[in-house]
Amino acid sequence: MSATAVPVRSRRTRGPRRTVRARGAGLGLVAWLAGVVFFLPIAWMALTSFHSESDAATNPPSLGAALTLDGYREFFGTGGGASPWPALVNSTVASVVSTLCVLLLALPAAYALSVRPVRKWTDVLFFFLSTKMLPVVAGLLPIYLFAKNTGMLDNIWLLVILYTSMNLPIAVWMMQSFLAEVPVAVIEAAQIDGARLPTVLARVVAPIALPGIAATALICFIFSWNELLFARVLTGVVAETAPVFLTGFITSQGLFLAKVCAASLVISLPVLAAGFAAQDKLVQGLSLGAVK
C-alpha cells in the first residue's frame, strides 16, 4: 500500500510543478520581449548618431550606412558651434544641489510623518501629493514675474530653488513609506544613549533607510535633469541647461537628425550612469515595504 502511494503522489505533484515552470518561463519570455521593445529606440538612436545627416534622413533608414563622428563633433562644437559644457555644468549643478536640498528637507519631514507621526499625517501626505496635481504651466507666469522683479532671470540658483520645491512633495511621500520600516526600538535605544534628533537621523535612520534614500535621490535627480519648461522660459545664456541646449539643434531648415541623436545620447549618459550605479539601491528602495 505505501509502496504504491508514493508514485501516485509524485504523479499528482508533477503536473502542477510543470505548470508553474511553464508559467515562469512564459513570464520570463514576456519580460525579455518587453525589455527588447523598450531598448530598441535607444539602440536606434545610438546607431543614428553615428550616421551622416544624409544617411540618417533616408526613408527607409539605411542600417548599413557608413559610420561617422560628425554628429558628435557638431555637438561638442569642434565645427565652430557653441560648446555644450556650460549647459552640462548648469544641469549638473541644478540637479545635484537641488537633490541634496530635497534630501535634507525630506528626511526630517518623513521622520515626523512616519517614526514620530503627527496628527492627521495622512492629510499632510495628501496635501503634499496634491501640490503635484497643479499643471506646471499654470504656475509659469507668476514665477516668471517673480524672477523678473527680483532680478533672478537666467540664474542657475533660481532653478535650484524651483527644482527643490517641485521634487520635495514626491520625496516626502516616498521617504515616509521607507522610514516607516525603520524599527522604533533602534531609535529608542539611541535616544536612551543620549543621541539627539540630528544624530538619530544621521547615524541611525539614514543608514537603515539608505536604499530608500538612494531611490528617492535618483528619481529627484532624473526629474531635475530632464526638466525643460522652466529652464526654457527662465534661462537664456548664462543658466542654460542641457535639455534647453538640445532644443537648439532642432531647426525648421536643414538636416539635424544625426546631430540631435548624438546630443540626446550624450545628455542621457549622466542619468543612465547614475541609474546603473545605483540600480541595486533603486530596486531595494522601490521594493522596501512591499512585502510584509
Rank of each mutant, 00 (worst) to 15 (best):
204 V>Y: 11
204 V>D: 06
204 V>G: 06
204 V>H: 11
206 A>W: 12
206 A>K: 08
206 A>Q: 09
207 P>Q: 12
207 P>R: 14
207 P>T: 11
208 I>V: 14
208 I>H: 07
209 A>Q: 05
210 L>Y: 07
210 L>E: 02
210 L>Q: 09
210 L>T: 02
211 P>D: 04
211 P>E: 04
211 P>S: 05
212 G>E: 01
213 I>R: 09
214 A>V: 13
214 A>Q: 06
215 A>T: 03
216 T>K: 00
217 A>F: 08
217 A>Q: 10
217 A>W: 06
218 L>V: 12
219 I>T: 05
219 I>L: 15
220 C>D: 04
220 C>K: 01
221 F>E: 01
221 F>I: 00
221 F>W: 13
222 I>L: 15
223 F>P: 01
224 S>L: 01
224 S>W: 00
225 W>F: 13
226 N>F: 04
227 E>F: 02
227 E>T: 01
228 L>N: 06
228 L>Q: 06
229 L>A: 09
229 L>F: 11
231 A>W: 02
232 R>E: 12
233 V>G: 02
233 V>F: 10
234 L>Y: 10
234 L>N: 03
234 L>P: 00
234 L>D: 01
235 T>Q: 03
235 T>N: 03
236 G>T: 08
237 V>C: 03
238 V>P: 02
238 V>W: 12
239 A>T: 04
239 A>G: 08
239 A>L: 09
240 E>N: 10
240 E>L: 04
240 E>T: 11
242 A>L: 10
242 A>K: 03
243 P>I: 03
243 P>N: 09
244 V>N: 11
244 V>Q: 10
245 F>S: 09
245 F>G: 11
245 F>V: 09
246 L>T: 01
246 L>Q: 07
247 T>F: 11
247 T>L: 13
248 G>M: 10
248 G>N: 12
248 G>Y: 09
249 F>Q: 06
249 F>A: 10
250 I>W: 08
250 I>H: 06
250 I>K: 08
251 T>Y: 12
251 T>C: 07
252 S>Q: 15
252 S>N: 13
254 G>T: 11
254 G>C: 14
254 G>K: 12
255 L>T: 14
255 L>I: 12
256 F>Q: 14
257 L>N: 13
257 L>C: 08
257 L>V: 15
259 K>C: 09
260 V>M: 10
